[in-house]
Amino acid sequence: MLADLVQNSLDGLAAGAAYALLALGFTLIFGVLRRANLSYGPAIMFGCYAAALTHQHFGAGLFMLALVTIAGAVLAGAYVERLCFAPHREGSAIAAMVASFALWMQFEELAALVLPGHLYAFPMLHEGAPLALGAFTFRIDALVLLAVAILVCASLWWMLYRSRFGLAVRAVIEQPTAASLAGINVPRVLVRVFALASAIGGVAGYLVVASNGQITPMLGMWATLKGLLAMMLGGLGSLPGAVLGGLALGLIEAHSQWYLGPQMRDLIAYLLLFVLLAARVPWMTSRSAS
């Protein structure tokens, strides 16, 4: 009983680490732009497909594939930023969101064009047996995922709170007009944050695809949904909240899958979000209200 609980929690944390990364990228974009980027996941998928193609044609190594994924996600992110967000900086948030949905469809069509089959193999991070420690097993790829997520969080924290660029990012998140008046080039900060968020998404996308050993055109929607859900669970717009929201989502999914069955897995997460929103818990209403 207890062993199951611990094992499920470990599995949940690993999945949650990926969700946390997705939510971090989502939250960064939401924080500086006050706009939801529905094409966030599809841009990550673009990067993963670029890596899958690179693998097919050149058989590149794991590290190279990770770089290709990140570069592809940043490139696709830049495309989304130029088309959806740069033109609507002062204008309607809805227009930007709808535009990002249109690009989502573009990315899915593109995926269907370049890899018409539904499922493609992707080189695994680790093929051997999982690490056994007493009664528990650790998947090596899950450990890598956790370690990378911790590294990304620590670097992001350092960047935000210890660097000049981070000061500018926080200023833009808190009070964009005052940031401009302080001499910060706000449009430039926005573009860079978008690129950074896409890169973090690329890292998450690569780790997930390489853990699963396969890629499907569902990846885009999956990444957007999980990122959005984790961001909202953690309280729209808070970076530590995004990490906690991601981990919580991973744990909730793992436990509800084990105790209630796989069909209930996603339902429970949505139900929880609904309850939290309806109950107006403080951390979900304070920032999103402004």
């Binding site: 000061l167 926080r170 200023a171 808190e174 007009t177 005052a178 302080a182 001499g183």
Partner: peptide, 19 residues
């Protein structure tokens, strides 16, 4: 005023000297 509310007083001043 539009201060940066979640930043410290010192960070607000540093932001003013951003350039």
């Amino acid at each position: 005023r539009l201060v940066f509310p979640a930043m410290t007083v010192l960070e607000n001043l540093q932001a003013g000297a951003f350039q």
